[in-house]
C-alpha cells in the first residue's frame, strides 16, 4: 500500500503544535513550467500541502482572481492530462508533500471516473477536492477513489446543516475542507464575522483533521484558524502574487509569501534568491 502522505503530514503538524499551511495553485498559471518550479519551492518555503487545480471553463465557486488565472491557463490549452502528468513529474521532488487536485466535476466526469481515479493513483496524487460535488453526490467518485487509496475531500460551509455534514463526513478521508465564509474564493482583510465557531459542529461528527479555506490571506489569519482547525488553505492571495509578478520573479515572490504565511524566516535558511 502506498504511503498516506496526508495522514503523516497532519500527524507531524500536530506533534509540532502549529497550524498547517495548505496552498493552492492554478495549474498552468502562468505556465506549466512555472507550476513545476513552484511546487518544490513552495514546499521548501513552508507549504505543508499543495492543492493543484484542473482548470475548468466555468469556475462558478471562484472569485475574480482565480477565474482570471483559470482562463489564463485554459487559453494556453492546459488539459486534465497535463495536470496529472505534472504531478507524476514533480512527485519525486516532493516525496512527503501531499498533492491534492482541486477540481470541478465535469472535467473528471468527462475523463471517466474510473479512468480518472486510476490515473490519479498512478501519478501519485494524494487526494481530490471536488468543488461542486457535495457529500450527497460524491458516492460514485468515492467508490472509485477509496479502493485506490486516494482521499476524497468534499467541502463543507458555515451554512452546512447536520445532514450535509453527515453526508460529507461519511465519504471523507484524510481531512475535511471547511469554507470559512459564505462566498466565492477571494482574499479578505478579516476572517468571517460569523467566526469559526461552526467548525465545532463539524468536529462533533469526525476525528479527521479540519482545514479551513477561502478568504485567508495573512499570517494572522493562519494563526486564528489554528485555534479551531489543523490547517489553513490559501489560494487567492497566492494567485494574485503569481499573476502580478514578472515571469522571472514568480517563484521568488510566491515563495516569499508562503514563508510569511507559514511564519518562517525568509529567505529560508540555505535557500538562495
Amino acid at each position: 500500500m502506498s504511503k498516506d502522505r496526508i495522514k503523516e503530514k497532519f500527524n507531524a503538524i500536530r506533534q509540532e503544535g502549529r497550524p498547517g499551511l495548505i496552498v493552492y495553485l492554478t495549474t498552468g498559471c502562468p505556465d506549466l513550467e512555472a507550476t513545476l518550479e513552484l511546487i518544490p519551492a513552495l514546499a521548501a518555503a513552508g507549504a505543508d500541502a499543495i492543492e493543484l487545480s484542473i482548470p475548468f471553463s466555468d469556475p462558478l465557486a471562484d472569485g475574480p482572481v482565480i477565474q482570471e488565472s483559470t482562463f489564463h491557463a485554459l487559453a494556453q490549452g492546459v488539459t486534465p492530462d497535463d495536470c496529472l502528468d505534472l504531478v507524476a513529474q514533480v512527485r519525486g521532488e516532493v516525496p512527503d508533500t501531499p498533492l491534492i487536485l482541486m477540481t470541478y466535476y465535469n472535467p473528471i466526469l468527462s475523463y471517466g471516473l474510473e479512468r480518472f481515479a486510476q490515473r490519479v493513483a498512478e501519478c501519485g496524487v494524494d487526494g481530490i477536492i471536488p468543488v461542486d460535488v457535495p457529500g450527497e453526490e460524491a458516492e460514485p467518485l468515492f467508490n472509485q477513489c477509496a479502493p485506490r487509496n486516494v482521499h476524497l475531500v468534499p467541502l463543507l460551509a458555515p451554512t452546512s446543516n447536520e445532514d450535509n455534514i453527515r453526508a460529507a463526513v461519511a465519504l471523507s478521508s484524510g481531512f475535511i475542507y471547511c469554507v470559512s465564509l459564505t462566498g466565492t474564493t477571494g482574499a479578505q482583510n478579516q476572517l468571517s464575522q460569523r467566526g469559526l465557531e461552526w467548525l465545532n459542529r463539524v468536529s462533533a461528527h469526525t476525528a479527521l483533521p479540519l482545514a479551513v479555506g477561502f478568504g485567508i490571506s495573512r499570517r494572522e489569519h493562519v494563526e486564528t484558524v489554528g485555534r479551531y482547525a489543523q490547517a489553513a488553505a490559501v489560494g487567492t492571495a497566492l494567485i494574485r502574487t503569481v499573476l502580478d509578478s514578472p515571469r522571472d520573479q514568480v517563484v521568488a515572490q510566491a515563495s516569499k509569501l508562503v514563508a510569511e504565511l507559514a511564519g518562517q524566516p525568509w529567505p529560508a535558511s540555505g535557500g538562495t534568491l
Binding site: A61, L155, V179
Partner: peptide, 10 residues
C-alpha cells in the same frame, strides 16, 4: 441532482 458548492446545499 445537486452539483453545487457546499454553501448552497442547505
Amino acid at each position: 441532482g445537486k452539483f453545487v458548492p457546499a454553501t448552497l446545499m442547505a
